[in-house]
Nucleic acid binder design. Structure first.
Length: 285
DNA sequence: TTCCAGGACCGGG
DNA sequence: CCCGGTCATGGA
C-alpha cells in the first residue's frame, strides 16, 4: 500500500441544514465519474443530485459548480468523520498526476478522468458487490444489490436501506436469497457471510495484511477469484496498489501499455486502473 | 434464437 | 498450467 498523504480539512461552511465544501482545482472531484463508474452500485442521480446510502447513512449531495460540494442535512463533524474519507477527499492526488506526466498517454487518460476519485467503501459491502458483479452487467448488479438491501438491510428515514451485515446473511438459505434473482451467485454470498461471521476470514486482517496475503485470505471464499478479490481489496480495504484484471483492463493494457504501466505509478496501480476503465468505457461507445 | 455481461469453478488433457 | 464447458438471469 502506498502512503496516504492526508490533506488538511477542506473549507467548509454551514448554510441552514446543508454543508458546503470547497473543492480545490488541484484536487478536483467529479461526482458522476466517481459514483457511477463501476466502483460503487448504490448511487443514482436525479436532476443533478446524487442520492445513496453508505456506511448506514443516507445522503443527498450535489455540485452546482466545480468548486462546490453540497451535502444535504449534514454537519461538519459528520463530513470529517465519514464522508471526507469515503469520497477519498483526504488523499492528495497531486503526486499521482505528477507521476503520470512521465507518460503522455497515461497523463491524457488521467486528465480525461479528471475529478474521478477512488472511494473507500465498506469492506463487506465491497466483497458482496463484486461477488455479484462476476459474469454480470452493471444494471443487473445494481438491481440485485438493491434487492439485497431491501430484503435484509435495515430501513432508513428517507426510504433507503442499510447494507446487510454478515451476521444477518450468514444463517440464511439459498431459498431465502431467491428473491434477489442473483442466480448462481447466491451461494457465494452465503459462503462469504458465513466465513466472515465465523472469523475463518478475518475482516480486520484484510486491512493490515500486504495485498498478496490479503488476496489469498479473501480467495478462501467460494466465488472469489483473483479479480473479485482485487476489487474488494481496492474498493473496500484501501489496497490502492491492487489492479483488478477484468476483460476491459486486460484489453486496455494489451493495446495501450503492452510494456506494462510506468514503474512510478505502480504503488497506486488500482487508482490508475480506474482511470483507464473509465477511459475505455467512455471512448469505446 | 442467440449472445453477452467488471468471473469463477470444475473437470480433463 | 491451461483449456472448454458450465453456471442464473435478463436485456439487446
Amino acid at each position: 500500500m502506498s502512503e496516504v498523504i492526508t490533506l488538511p480539512p477542506r473549507v467548509v461552511s454551514q448554510k441552514g441544514s446543508n454543508l458546503y465544501i470547497t473543492i480545490s482545482q488541484g484536487n478536483p472531484l467529479d461526482l458522476a465519474k466517481t459514483l457511477d463508474c463501476g466502483q460503487a452500485f448504490r448511487w443514482s442521480e436525479t436532476a443533478g443530485k446524487w442520492r445513496g446510502v453508505a456506511g448506514g447513512r443516507e445522503m443527498i449531495m450535489y455540485m452546482p459548480d466545480d468548486e462546490t460540494l453540497i451535502f444535504e442535512n449534514t454537519e461538519e463533524a459528520e463530513y470529517i468523520s465519514f464522508w471526507r474519507h469515503y469520497l477519498d477527499l483526504d488523499r492528495d492526488y497531486a503526486p499521482l498526476i505528477a507521476a503520470a506526466k512521465s507518460d503522455p498517454l497515461l497523463y491524457k487518460i488521467i486528465e480525461y478522468g479528471r475529478g474521478l476519485r477512488l472511494m473507500n467503501q465498506d469492506g463487506f459491502e465491497a466483497i458482496c458487490s463484486f461477488i455479484i458483479s462476476q459474469n454480470n452487467n452493471i444494471p443487473r448488479i445494481k438491481g440485485i444489490i438493491g434487492r439485497l438491501c431491501e430484503s435484509f438491510g435495515d430501513p432508513l428515514p428517507l426510504g433507503g436501506y442499510t447494507f446487510p451485515t454478515a451476521a444477518r446473511l450468514a444463517p440464511l438459505s439459498r431459498e431465502q436469497l431467491s428473491p434477489l434473482r442473483a442466480g448462481f451467485r447466491d451461494k457465494y454470498i452465503l459462503d462469504a457471510a458465513a466465513k466472515i461471521e465465523s472469523g475463518e476470514v478475518a475482516m480486520t486482517s484484510l486491512y493490515t495484511l500486504c495485498s498478496d496475503d490479503a488476496r489469498g485470505e479473501l480467495m478462501k471464499i467460494k466465488g472469489i477469484g483473483p479479480k473479485v478479490a482485487d476489487c474488494a481489496l481496492l474498493f473496500g480495504f484501501g489496497h490502492i496498489d491492487c489492479l483488478p484484471k477484468d476483460v476491459w483492463i486486460k484489453r486496455a493494457l494489451a493495446e495501450l501499455f503492452p510494456g506494462g504501466l510506468p514503474e512510478n505509478v505502480l504503488p497506486f496501480a488500482g487508482l490508475v486502473q480506474q482511470y483507464i476503465f473509465l477511459y475505455m468505457r467512455e471512448t469505446s461507445k
